[in-house]
C-alpha cells in the first residue's frame, strides 16, 4: 500500500514505467502477488472466514480442510483468518517503518547533500548509525522503548533511516549541480523552495526504490524480533508471532507455521523483485550496486 503511492507520483504522467514493468514477467507476477496480499489485508474483515481470535478449543489442531482451509491452531483459531489479519499488522508495520525511515532519512539526506557544511557531521552520523547491525539496534531500541507495535515501528524506522539517508544524500549531491537548480539559485529562489520543488521531486525515484527494499526488510525484521520474543507482544497476530507460537507444533501441525511463513516469503520476495525492476527502470545508475 505504501509502495504503490509514490510510484504514480514519481512517474508524473509518464506511461513508460507501467509499460516497462509490463515487459518484465517477474515484476508482473510480483505485482499481482503483492496486490493480492495487500487487498486481502485491507479487506480482512470481509475476506477472513472467521474472527481471528475466536477460540474454539474443541476444534484445535485440525489440518487444512474445507471448513478451515489452512487448518486451525492450538486454540482452534482459524489459521487462514489469522494469516490474513496478521498480514494486516505485518504490512502495516512494514509500511509504517517505510514512512518513518523515509521521513528521517530524507530529512537527513537532503540536509547533508545540499548544505556542504552539514555534510561532514551528518554523514558521520549516518555512518555511525549504519555501524549497528539492524536486528541488534532494533532489539536495543525496543528494549529501551518497551515492546509494543508502535515502538517496534519506531525502532525499525530509526534502524532503516540511514539507508534512505545515504541514497538521498548521493542523489541530492548530483541534483544540486544540475543546471536548472543552479539557475534557480542564481535567480534568488528561496532555498526551501528549491529543495521542495526541484530537489525533492527528483528524489522520488531513488526513494521509491529504497522504500521497497526497506519495506521488505522491515517485514523480515519484525518476524525476527517476534521470533526472539523481543518484538510485538505474542497476542497481537503478526506473521512473526504466528510462526513463533506455531513452532511447538511443527511436527504435529506444521500448517500453523507454514502458512504465515509462505506469506512472509511471498511478500518479501515480491517486494524485492519489484524493487529490482523499479531500480532498473527508474535509476539505471544504481542498477548494479546494492
Amino acid at each position: 500500500m505504501a509502495a504503490s503511492a509514490p510510484i504514480s507520483a514519481s512517474v508524473s504522467g509518464d506511461e513508460s514505467l507501467v509499460a516497462g514493468l509490463m515487459r518484465r514477467p517477474p515484476a508482473v507476477g510480483a505485482a499481482i502477488v503483492l496486490a493480492l496480499v495487500i487487498a486481502a489485508a485491507l479487506a480482512a474483515q470481509w475476506v477472513a472466514p472467521y474472527a481471528p481470535s475466536k477460540l474454539s478449543i474443541a476444534s484445535r489442531l485440525q489440518g487444512p480442510s474445507l471448513v478451515h482451509l489452512f487448518g486451525t491452531d492450538e486454540f482452534g483459531r482459524d489459521v487462514l483468518s489469522r494469516t490474513i489479519w496478521a498480514g494486516r499488522v505485518s504490512l502495516a508495520v512494514g509500511g509504517s517503518v517505510v514512512v518513518v525511515s523515509c521521513l528521517i532519512g530524507v530529512t537527513l539526506g537532503l540536509l547533508a547533500g545540499y548544505f556542504r557544511r552539514l555534510d561532514g557531521p551528518l554523514s558521520r552520523l549516518i555512518d555511525a548509525m549504519m555501524a549497528f547491525p539492524d536486528i541488534l539496534l532494533a532489539i536495543a531500541l525496543v528494549a529501551a522503548l518497551g515492546p509494543n507495535v508502535v515502538n517496534v515501528v519506531l525502532a525499525l524506522g530509526i534502524v532503516y533511516a540511514p539507508r534512505a539517508a545515504r541514497v538521498v544524500r548521493a542523489s541530492t549531491l548530483v541534483i544540486r549541480e544540475l543546471a536548472y537548480v543552479e539557475a534557480a539559485r542564481a535567480l534568488g529562489v528561496p532555498t526551501y523552495k528549491i529543495l521542495l520543488r526541484h530537489v525533492l521531486r527528483n528524489l522520488a525515484s531513488p526513494i521509491t526504490v529504497q522504500a521497497t527494499f526497506i519495506f521488505a526488510n522491515a517485514i523480515l525484521a519484525e518476524a525476527g524480533l517476534s521470533f526472539l520474543g523481543v518484538g510485538v507482544s505474542p497476542d497481537v497476530p503478526t506473521w512473526g508471532t504466528m510462526i513463533a507460537m506455531g513452532r511447538q507444533f511443527m511436527d504435529q501441525a506444521g500448517w500453523i507455521m507454514w502458512f504465515p511463513g509462505i506469506a512472509i516469503v511471498a511478500s518479501v520476495m515480491s517486494l524485492q523483485v519489484m524493487g529490482d525492476a523499479l531500480r532498473d527502470l527508474l535509476d539505471p545508475r544504481l542498477a548494479r550496486t546494492t
Binding site: 517477474p26 525476527g224 512473526g240 513452532r247 511443527m250 511463513g261 512472509i264 516469503v265 518479501v268 524485492q272
Partner: peptide, 21 residues
C-alpha cells in the same frame, strides 16, 4: 538470480528450524 532473491526472502530462523528438524 531468482534463487538469490528467494533465499534473501526466507526468514533466517525459519531456515534454521528446518535444517535442525
Amino acid at each position: 538470480t531468482t534463487t538469490a532473491v528467494f533465499v534473501a526472502s526466507i526468514p533466517s530462523f525459519w531456515l534454521g528450524l528446518v535444517l535442525m528438524q
